[in-house]
Each structure stands twice: as C-alpha cells, then as structure tokens.
C-alpha cells in the first residue's frame, strides 16, 4: 500500500512536467510565457514566482475546500490567489528590484494566470493537502522549465548570450521582438507534439505485436 501511495505521489508531481505540461500540452498561461521570455533569467524569475503562488494557493484552497460554498467558490479562490500575488509583488519589489522592473505588469497579472485558477478549480478543491502541494509544485516546475527553455532559445538566437554570458556576435534580433516569441513557441509546441505522436505510434505497434503473439500462442 505504501508503495502505491508513493508512486501516486510521484505521478502527481511528474504529470505537471511531462504529460500535462501547462505550456506545451494545455496551452495555459500564455501571456506571461510569451511576454517575459526575452531572456532566460526573466523566464526563470517568472517561473519561480508562479511556483510559490501556485503551491501556496493550492495548499490553502485544499485546506478550505470543505468550508467553501459551491456557488461562490470562484471569487473565494481568486481572493486567495490575489493575496499571495500581492505578497510576492511586494517581496520582489523589496528584494529583487531589477527583476521586478522587467517583469512589470505581469506580476499583478499572475492573478489571472489560468494555470493557477485552473489547478485550484480542477485539482486542489477536490484533493487532500499533500497531493495539492505536489500538484502545485509539479505544475509550477513544468511551467518554469517551459519558460526557461523558451527564454534560453530566444536569448541565444536573438542576443547571442545565455543567462547574461556572452556566446557569439551572431544576433537575429527578431527573436527578441514579439513575432519571435510567437514563432519560437509555435515550433516548440510542434516539436513536443511530434514526440508525443511518435510515442503513441510506438505504443500502438507494441500492443499490436503483443496481440499477434497472443493469438499465435
């Protein structure tokens, strides 16, 4: 039984990074994804802010899930989320001023990031606290990795640097501009889709082979 619980917990954490990745699979939270990823470090900063808000709001929503009347659950969830976002906003203003300035309007906008409300509604309001915590962490890490990947590609191609380290003088400025964000994300989504399709095909083939062997026997 302990074994099953452990694998269940691991799955709850892992699915946010792979099979239910918020950016490439669910296409949630696109605005900050596209807007702040002009450099890898910005993507990382935004991702960390989202991990903190998502995990804490998931915990609180899960704790109060039995006391919340069904009809007014959305305003209550939004209030919980907005409280944590305000806290993060003030903390970042105080301790990481430069990052706070670059992310700008997108920090208060974490409130309406559909990942957070989506997880509160779809997962945390129906599951016990420890699963809600793992789910929040997993989704947050998945989101952060997606932002970091997109930010890295855009920074390397568009500015010739990575995390502020100079790589070469070749610069394609378009990747820093808005069109570059859309196109890079589009190709990344296609790439992950391609991997998924290939995997499904392989799985189908294996099942067919197993079936054929069973029939032979």
């Amino acid at each position: 039984m302990a074994d099953k619980n452990e694998s269940m917990a691991w799955y709850t954490f892992k699915k946010g990074i792979t099979s239910e990745n918020p950016t490439y699979v669910q296409a949630l939270g696109m605005c900050p994804t596209l807007a702040v990823t002009t450099a890898a470090i910005n993507g990382l900063g935004m991702g960390l802010a989202v991990i903190i808000v998502l995990t804490l709001s998931n915990i609180i929503v899960s704790l109060i899930r039995k006391a919340v009347p069904k009809d007014i659950r959305i305003p209550i969830f939004i209030t919980v989320i907005a409280t944590f976002v305000t806290m993060i906003d003030l903390l970042m203003h105080a301790y990481t001023y430069d990052l706070w300035k670059t992310l700008g309007i997108f920090i208060p906008l974490i409130v309406v990031n559909c990942i957070i409300l989506g997880r509160a509604e779809a997962f945390a309001s129906k599951n016990p606290v420890h699963y809600a915590l793992l789910d929040g962490l997993g989704m947050g890490v998945g989101f952060t990795l997606s932002l970091f990947l997109l930010g890295s590609i855009r920074e390397i191609l568009g500015n010739g640097t990575w995390m502020g380290i100079h790589l070469w003088n070749f610069k394609m400025f378009m990747f820093i501009l808005p069109p570059g964000a859309f196109i890079t994300l589009g190709f990344l989504a296609a790439f992950f889709n391609y991997i998924k399709i290939k995997r499904e095909e392989a799985e189908k083939k294996r099942q067919q082979q197993a079936k054929a062997q069973a029939q032979k026997a």
């Binding site: 069109p179 570059g180 859309f182 589009g186 190709f187 989504a189 296609a190 790439f191 889709n193 399709i197």
Partner: peptide, 23 residues
C-alpha cells in the same frame, strides 16, 4: 497540415506572422 503542427502550433506561428505585420 503536417500533423505535429495542427491546432496550437500553427495558430502560434500565424499569430507571429500577424504580429510582424502589425509591427
């Protein structure tokens, strides 16, 4: 369309081209 590009990714690429036009 090529299969991996269906739905989300072709929409994003199109949005990128439109965004270039709006620039």
């Amino acid at each position: 369309l090529p299969k991996p590009f269906e739905d989300l990714s072709i929409a994003l690429v199109t949005a990128g081209l439109l965004s270039m036009a709006f620039m």
